[in-house]
Amino acid sequence: MQADEVETILVASSDALQRSMIAKYLRECGYSVIEATGFDDARIAIGHYEVDVVVSDTQMRDGTGFDLSTYIRSRHLDIEIILTQSLVKTAQVAGDLCEQGPLDQPYHPQRLVDEIKRLRAVR
């Protein structure tokens, strides 16, 4: 996957803190990012926008990442699907996408993990 081929990333997660910070991270890497708060949002997004990559939690409030993957595959859409189960994994996926993104010096995804953990700790 080359950076100039990836334009729009759909981040599907029902965890508001994690979703918003991963989306912000990816935007700052230069991507167009759509945020879906669950399966239904993601389904609508895919129907209305050209999405190149889906980064989805396996568990969402109204469905699973596997449901979303099945939905996409059943429509033969050319979308790369990355399912994640933990914050660390999700941040690593975002970091990998950023390494292929338009910025010269992407920042380390561990910083993203640390920041989200810090926010959860101060709650």
């Binding site: 508001a16 803190l17 918003s20 669950g38 949002d41 926010l119 101060v122």
Partner: peptide, 20 residues
């Protein structure tokens, strides 16, 4: 502007409790 999106009031209040 920097925008954070949520789909319910419950989710918004949850986020606000993280001192964001």
């Amino acid at each position: 502007w920097e925008v954070v999106e949520v789909s319910s009031a419950d989710e918004a209040m949850e986020l606000l409790r993280y001192r964001v």
